[in-house]
Amino acid sequence: MTKQEIEKKVELIKEISGCDPYKCMKCGKCSGSCPAFNEMDVKPHQFASYIVNGDIESLVSSKSLWKCLTCLACIERCPRSVQPGKLIDAARQLVERERGGDYLHAEDIPELLDDDVPQQLLVSAYRRYRR
C-alpha cells in the first residue's frame, strides 16, 4: 500500500467506527475481557496502535477480523471510549467491501447446517462474514 492509500484507510476506519484510536491508553482491559483472545493473532489492545501506526495491511489480513464474536464486552468496559470492537469491525468492513473479501460463501452453507440452526445464526453469520 502506498502512504496515501494507508492514510485513506486509516481515515476510513476512523469514520466507519466513529472511534478515536488516539484515546487508547494501552491498559489492556479489552484483552482482559475478550472471549476470543486466544483465537486472535492481533489482540484487541493492539487494534488502536495498528491504526495509529498505519499498519493497516497487517490489521486487514489478520485472523482477528473473523474471530471477534461481537460480544461487546470490550466496548462496554473500555475506560477510554476507544471501543476496540468497533475498530476491528470497521477493519472487517474494509475487507468485505472489496471484491473477494467475503469470509463465508453461499455454496459452503448447506454443509454447515444442521436441523437446529436458528435463522438468527444464519443471518448473523451472513452479515458478519460477508458483504
Partner: peptide, 12 residues
Amino acid sequence: NECCGAYSSLKE
C-alpha cells in the same frame, strides 16, 4: 453475561 460463542458456531 459472558458470550456463548455467538455466530462463530456456524464456521468455528
